[in-house]
Design a binder for these strands. Structure first.
Lengths: 199, 199
DNA sequence: GTCTATATCTTGATAGAC
DNA sequence: GTCTATCAAGATATAGAC
């Protein structure tokens, strides 16, 4: 892959995190084993504990924050695609429907399953998921403020839109159908439009 | 507890299902053990396999369908509380915020965590969760139709409202705050209002 | 740092006494 | 039908050779 000098440690670590992202999203936190992650990462089992001495919790926390940051960029990119934030919001949902099919209804949100699993059972991970959601809401709210929605209302609107997206993913995955996400697209537009009209 | 004649099998079985409902909602499917369920139900371990020869999957399926039916009645009750379905919808969300606090942010939706866990990993359970969501949407859509929203749009609206509720629960549990559900209350009203206005 | 072998615990499930 | 003991397989985590 490269000249052989710079390989090593860094790349192995990265493969482990990437494998964690994929497996946690598909099978959740308790449903994914450390051996399974090592195998998917093509890394020796011991390497996981070399890079993550804190074990499964430490690995999961990094997975949550890493994939959260990736999604943050995605939110930013989608919202700057159109001037009109009603259109941008609706388009983001229809694009998500496409992603859902591409992934064969594996979770398009990398932290949703884990977030529900740990909410009442693992305090440090609960906090990590909370901060990730918070970062998404803050970023989306900034787009809505720029689009003309007053600040406090923009935050409420962003919260509702993120919630709607997560819930639509849940129904869509259960039904193996994009219909809920497409219905949510229109609903999201209605939410933002109402906020623009001053509630 | 009673005269000693009518105790036995039926009640033990019921305690097992009830314990399953509570534990699956809190810790999810893979995060809950059969021994844990037996202990919580104050039932001997072997009784679980006596009543549920299909093991964990069979028990989980019954838990999903049972709690789904309970929630179906709840949806029906909430929507008949007010004539105006915009108000009824918004009130249902604010009531949910109260439930969330009462449960100390344990999942108010008994099947959400399980639904995400099994969506890509367990086909019979995925189908069970799908049918439960479907029943909720159908019931809620009927209320919206009665409230004056034309049938096909009523179904889309109901789907979006249920999705919004599930997503709001997710954010609220992660943040340990009712704010997302309260924000969603206003958003849900906006969705229904838009549908009433003919989209 | 890489990798293997293993310790320890818990899981879902079963057998069989009562 | 109730209950206990136990199985085999899985989990997380560690020890130690290389």
């Amino acid at each position: 892959m490269n000249d052989g000098r710079t390989t090593s440690t860094h790349e192995t670590r990265q493969r482990i995190v990437r494998a964690g992202i994929e497996l946690f999203r598909r099978s959740g936190y308790t449903g994914t084993g450390m051996k399974q992650i090592a195998e998917a990462a093509e890394a020796p089992f011991g390497s996981i504990y070399h890079f993550f001495p804190g074990g499964k919790v430490q690995l999961a926390e990094e997975v949550i924050r890493t994939s959260g940051a990736v999604y943050l960029d995605l939110v930013a990119a989608l919202m700057t695609a159109h001037e009109d934030c009603v259109v941008a919001t609706a388009d983001a949902f229809t694009a998500a429907a496409g992603t859902l099919v591409e992934l064969d209804f594996a979770d398009p949100c990398p932290i949703a399953t884990v977030a529900l699993e740990v909410a009442s059972t693992n305090e440090p991970l609960r906090q990590a998921t909370s901060e990730v959601f918070e970062s998404w809401v803050t970023r989306l709210a900034a787009s809505y403020t720029a689009g003309g929605i007053p600040a406090p209302l923009a935050r409420e609107t962003a919260t509702s839109v993120i919630a709607l997206l997560e819930g639509a993913f849940m129904l869509a995955r259960a039904a193996r159908s994009t219909a809920p996400v497409l219905a949510a697209s229109k609903a999201a537009a209605a939410i933002v439009r109402a906020a623009l009209a001053g509630e």
